[in-house]
C-alpha cells in the first residue's frame, strides 16, 4: 500500500489542486481524512451521522478548495467547514428528537450500578443541550481541544465558548441528578 503523505504542506496541496483538482484532493485526503473523521466523531458519536458529516465536509472542501484564500491554515479552514457541518447535524438531530427516542422514560436503574442506564442518562443529557453548547462541550470533553482551537474552528470568542461549556456542564449535572436521585 502506498504510504500516505502526512507531511505534505498546504502549498503543495494547493499547487497540485490548481494543476489537477482530483490529484490535489487526493493529497488533501492523504493528509486530513483521518483527523477530520476523528474530529467529527468526537462531536457526533453516532456512526451514520459521522459518516454523513465526513462525506459532506469532504465534498464541500473539494468543490470550494479553489476559493480558499489562505487567510487561515488549510487545517483551520477544513476544520471550520467540518465543525459547521457537525453543528448543522446536531441542530437537525435535535429537531427530530422525539419522545419515543428516549429510552429512559420512567426507567430507573435496576441494580445499584447499571452502566448502560447511566451511559444513556449521560448521553441523553448531552443530546438535550442547545446545539451550540453541545458542540462546544463535545469538542472540549471528547476532542480535548483547547478553547483557542475551538474558537478558531467556530469563529467565536474564547469567552463565549467558556460560557457555553460552563452552562453545558451545569445542565448535564442537573439532568444526571434528576434521573439518578
Amino acid at each position: 500500500m502506498m504510504q500516505k503523505k502526512k507531511n505534505i504542506s498546504d502549498l503543495e496541496i494547493l499547487e497540485a489542486f490548481k494543476g489537477n483538482p482530483e490529484a490535489g484532493m487526493k493529497l488533501f485526503l492523504d493528509k486530513f481524512e483521518r483527523p477530520l473523521f476523528v474530529h467529527l466523531r468526537s462531536i457526533l458519536r453516532v456512526d451514520e451521522d459521522t459518516e454523513d458529516a465526513y462525506q459532506n465536509t469532504c465534498v464541500k472542501i473539494y468543490l470550494h478548495l479553489d476559493r480558499y484564500k489562505g487567510k487561515s491554515s488549510l487545517y483551520t479552514w477544513a476544520y471550520r467547514i467540518a465543525t459547521n457541518e457537525a453543528l448543522g447535524l446536531l441542530r437537525k438531530r435535535k429537531n427530530t428528537l422525539s419522545e419515543s427516542d428516549s429510552v429512559l422514560k420512567s426507567h430507573k436503574a435496576a441494580s445499584s450500578v447499571d452502566y448502560d442506564f447511566l451511559l444513556n442518562v449521560f448521553h441523553e443529557a448531552i443530546d438535550q443541550l442547545p446545539s451550540r453548547q453541545q458542540l462546544v462541550f463535545q469538542m472540549r470533553y471528547y476532542g480535548n481541544y483547547s478553547y483557542a482551537d475551538i474558537a478558531r474552528f467556530t469563529e467565536r470568542s474564547v469567552g463565549g465558548l467558556k460560557a457555553n461549556y460552563h452552562h453545558a456542564k451545569k445542565k448535564i449535572e442537573e439532568h444526571i441528578k434528576s434521573k439518578t436521585l
Binding site: E22, M25, K26, L29, E51, Q55, C58, V59, Y62, L63
Partner: peptide
Amino acid sequence: KRQVILGAR
C-alpha cells in the same frame, strides 16, 4: 469513501 468524494466534482 474517496470514490464518492472525488466523484462530486
